[in-house]
Design a protein around this nucleic acid. Structure first.
Lengths: 218, 218
DNA sequence: TCAAAAGTGTTTATCGTACACCCATGC
DNA sequence: GCATGGGTGTACGATAAACACTTTTGA
């Protein structure tokens, strides 16, 4: 009854919106053969935890956040994806606000946010993972409310629109966007205004439910 | 450098359309603790193969078919999904025609097609897998051409419409359906007709490309 | 000539898209 | 009072949805 076993890892693509760009969190690797290259934070799946727990643990370790949107992306298992040994990776993606303090550890040379449009060279098959994660995100914000996890609790409609414009990489019409969003019964005004210098204060809204819902956003 | 390793399996949800119903292939289990229950065909991932190769092998073993639509569904890894030991399962789904001869092996009591609306009790977490596979299939036929893999090479527009009606579980308007499909540049007439007893013969069509394409079906 | 399934267009309603001006504030 | 971003409604075109009769064949 001794069966084949395989090393299983989790890699987590952590997205945020920072400086008007969609960014992912990358760590810079210290060890050969990927020394100097960047990669998504990852780790082995322990025998006592599910892959989702592994992803949650990685997220917590790197960013300190929890209770954010986290979804299994896909399992990557090309034979040569890790040069050292065979490791299959269950990739996840997470959406978080940019108001976090990144935690560096001695395991890595550096940790930072990279705009998805200007990624450095990535280790393993992480280029592939990034492509699929971005594609999934672009698709999914169009028929769900998951952007709640990228914004503060309270946000203005313009901020919400910007998130969509940045991820979809296109400009949207302000009136049509507001009409659409408000008709979906997803968000509600909190009754406060956001002051932002020399301009008319903006109404603040919040999501009615901070969990996955399917809606026809666009 | 001795790292934790985990048993990894592949389970394959094989769909077909049979007797006007969407069906999946199930095997009946011989061994305890799941004796008598039904399950999707599965197997361990060998060290020399990718999970997709495992899925292809399972498909070949059970049905003899190859070159059909096959896609990774999701990885299932609840701690207690297998009562005997921890096994994580990379689930795939495949779409095949119903003109296959099912292969029984001594490993199983029985192998047969089951309509998804009348599934028996399933082993492991396969109830969960079936739900997600059906949901994915329903979604995916609406924006891709993957039904090519459920039909014969040559088919009539009515047959194509029936596939959609059965999977989506709703009736569709014949004229609107034909208008839509023909406008998509997906299929072309082969110049032959299908005789079917006492009625007007139907034009036969085929898919221009038998590979995944994204289109706005509905 | 009858039954059975194939094939074919038009009208209407709905939804998406384009578009420009006034408002509230800080300096 | 002026610069900045917030907020609002309507008209038009495109697409989706509803709908009924004629055609071709076998028996």
């Amino acid at each position: 009854m001794s069966q084949q076993k395989i090393a299983v890892a989790v890699d987590t693509v952590i997205f945020t919106i920072k400086d008007d760009a969609l960014c992912v969190l990358l760590i810079q690797m210290k060890k050969k053969p990927y020394e100097g290259l960047w990669a998504f934070p990852g780790g082995r799946v322990e025998n006592t935890e599910t892959t989702e727990q592994t992803a949650t643990r990685i997220l917590q370790t790197q960013t300190g956040v929890s209770h954010v949107y986290l979804e299994q992306l896909k399992t990557f298992d090309a034979m040569e994806r890790d040069q050292l040994e065979r490791v299959i990776s269950v990739a996840f993606f997470a959406l978080i606000g940019d108001d976090v303090e990144l935690k560096t550890t001695e395991k890595y040379t550096d940790v930072k946010w990279w705009p998805v449009k200007k990624l450095p060279e990535l280790a393993y098959d992480h280029k592939q993972i990034s492509k699929e994660a971005i594609a999934r995100l672009k698709g999914k914000i169009q028929y769900t409310n998951i952007v709640y996890s990228l914004l503060e609790q309270e946000f203005t409609l313009t901020e919400l629109q910007h998130v969509y414009e940045i991820i979809l990489d296109q400009t949207l019409d302000k009136r049509n966007f507001r009409k659409r969003v408000l008709s979906l019964d997803l968000i509600e005004p909190v009754g406060k205004k956001k002051l932002s210098g020399a301009s008319r204060p903006a109404e603040l809204y919040k999501f009615k439910h901070r969990k996955l819902e399917y809606v026809e956003m666009m």
